[in-house]
């Protein structure tokens, strides 16, 4: 039994809303456990000559954490090294999902702001980013989702809580398409090959859950008049 009473493959509570910002072309807001993350997508607009690629769109991802997002001390105003790395791996994951050939010379910008953090922010950001990209009308080859698998007390579990991340033996964030292509894969810890396979399998088993999560968010949006007030949902 895990410290918060969850089963091995049980996820924390997740809530997803889309279309909650007015200026961004697409947007999404996710609550996952105690995480609260906002994503806004701009573009595709014309990329500046210095960075443009005439054959495909350039993807830019900025992952930032609000100074008040941690239970601990006041954060810094400048992105730290962890945030820079997360921006990179998320960019690479999303670049694979977006049909970049459709927007040659274009620039797509994904802005992520973590308002409240409690372990697993990068995978939660990924799910919200996928929803925001769909909201923006940007063509994707499939939907994607992510879960932080981990090794706690010598067994593989899904969706590490902050405590499990700190005290466990391994943190394995995985982002994957519905069809099973791995877009993001990292390891912080020590595991066996079998354990890695098990983690990936367990993450794969949640594809229907995330498909429903994203589908429901858009169904809710289109079941009534389009307008979504973040003040109501946060």
């Amino acid at each position: 039994m895990r410290s918060d009473g969850r089963q091995k493959d049980e996820l924390r509570n997740i809530k997803l809303e889309v279309g909650i910002l007015r200026n961004a072309k697409g947007s999404a807001y996710i609550e996952w456990g105690m995480n609260k993350i906002l994503v806004g997508v701009y573009g595709p607009e014309e990329a500046p000559p210095a960075i443009e690629n005439l054959e495909r769109a350039i993807i830019k991802v900025e992952y930032r954490m609000a100074t008040f997002c941690s239970l601990e001390e006041h954060g810094k105003y400048v992105p730290n090294r962890r945030a820079v790395e997360i921006s990179k791996v998320l960019r690479e994951a999303l670049s694979n999902l977006i049909l970049v050939d459709r927007y040659p010379g274009g620039l797509i910008e994904v802005q992520i702001l973590v308002l409240q953090a409690e372990g697993g922010t990068r995978v939660a950001s990924f799910v919200a980013a996928v929803a925001a990209l769909i909201d923006a009308g940007i063509a994707l080859r499939d939907i994607g989702y992510g879960i932080s698998a981990g090794k706690v007390n010598n067994e593989i579990v899904l969706d590490l809580s902050k405590e499990e991340d700190n005290l466990g033996q391994g943190d394995i964030p995985i982002c994957i398409t519905r069809k099973g292509d791995i877009l993001l894969l990292q390891l912080d810890g020590k595991i066996s090959y079998e354990e890695l396979q098990s983690a990936i399998e367990m993450v794969r088993s949640k594809r229907e859950f995330f498909e429903n999560l994203i589908r429901d968010a858009f169904t809710r949006r289109y079941s009534k008049e389009l307008s979504n007030d973040l003040v109501r949902h946060i």
Binding site: L21, R22, N23, M34, K36, A66, T67, F68, C69, S70, L71, E73, H74, G75, L115, Q116, A117, E118, D229, L230, V231, I234
Partner: peptide
């Protein structure tokens, strides 16, 4: 924002601001 020591969100038309307090 539960991680903050005081927080709020305010919307004025389409302008939206989130405020959070951290104490040191």
């Amino acid at each position: 924002i539960k991680t903050a020591e005081g927080s709020a969100i305010a919307r004025l038309g389409d302008t939206l601001v989130v405020a959070g307090i951290k104490i040191e």
